[in-house]
Amino acid sequence: MRLAEFILRDMEGIVAQWEAFAATLLPAAASMEKLALRDHAEQILVAVAKDLSTSQSREEQSEKSMGRTGKPANSPETATQTHALLRARSGFDIRQLVAEYRALRASVLRRWMDDCLLVSPDVDDIIRFNEAIDQAVAESVGFFSANVEQSRDLFLGMLGHDMRSPLHTIQMTASYLSALNAGEKISGAASRLISSGARMQALLDDLMDFNRTKLGLGINIAPVEIDLAKVFNDELERLRAAHPDRRIELTVHGDAHGVWDGRRLQQLLGNLVLNAIKYGTPDAPVHVVVAGESDELRFEVTNSGPAIERLTLVGIFDPLKRGPDQQKRHDADGNLGLGLYIAREIAKAHGGDIEARSDATETAFSVRLPRHV
Results as ranks from 00 to 15, higher is better:
184 E>S: 06
184 E>A: 13
184 E>I: 05
186 I>C: 09
186 I>Q: 10
186 I>A: 13
186 I>G: 09
186 I>H: 08
187 S>Y: 05
187 S>A: 13
187 S>N: 11
188 G>F: 07
188 G>N: 14
188 G>S: 14
189 A>K: 11
189 A>I: 08
189 A>T: 15
189 A>Q: 14
189 A>G: 11
190 A>Y: 10
190 A>W: 07
190 A>L: 09
190 A>V: 09
191 S>G: 15
191 S>E: 15
192 R>K: 14
192 R>P: 05
192 R>Y: 13
192 R>T: 11
193 L>W: 13
193 L>M: 15
194 I>S: 12
194 I>D: 08
194 I>A: 07
194 I>L: 12
195 S>L: 12
195 S>G: 14
195 S>K: 12
196 S>N: 14
196 S>I: 08
197 G>V: 06
197 G>T: 08
197 G>F: 05
198 A>T: 11
198 A>C: 06
198 A>R: 11
199 R>H: 12
199 R>F: 08
200 M>V: 10
200 M>Q: 07
200 M>G: 06
201 Q>A: 14
201 Q>W: 10
202 A>K: 05
202 A>W: 04
202 A>P: 07
202 A>D: 07
202 A>F: 01
202 A>E: 07
203 L>M: 09
203 L>Y: 08
204 L>C: 06
204 L>G: 08
204 L>R: 04
204 L>F: 08
204 L>I: 02
205 D>W: 07
205 D>A: 15
205 D>Q: 12
206 D>P: 02
206 D>Y: 03
206 D>N: 01
206 D>H: 01
207 L>W: 00
208 M>K: 04
208 M>V: 01
208 M>W: 00
208 M>I: 03
208 M>S: 01
209 D>A: 11
209 D>P: 10
209 D>K: 08
209 D>I: 10
209 D>E: 13
209 D>C: 12
209 D>S: 11
210 F>P: 02
210 F>E: 03
210 F>I: 00
211 N>C: 02
211 N>S: 08
212 R>H: 12
213 T>H: 03
213 T>E: 02
213 T>P: 00
213 T>A: 03
213 T>N: 01
214 K>A: 04
214 K>E: 03
214 K>I: 00
214 K>F: 00
214 K>V: 01
215 L>P: 05
215 L>R: 09
216 G>Y: 01
216 G>L: 01
216 G>F: 00
216 G>M: 00
217 L>C: 06
217 L>N: 07
218 G>E: 02
218 G>R: 04
218 G>Q: 03
219 I>A: 02
219 I>P: 02
219 I>N: 01
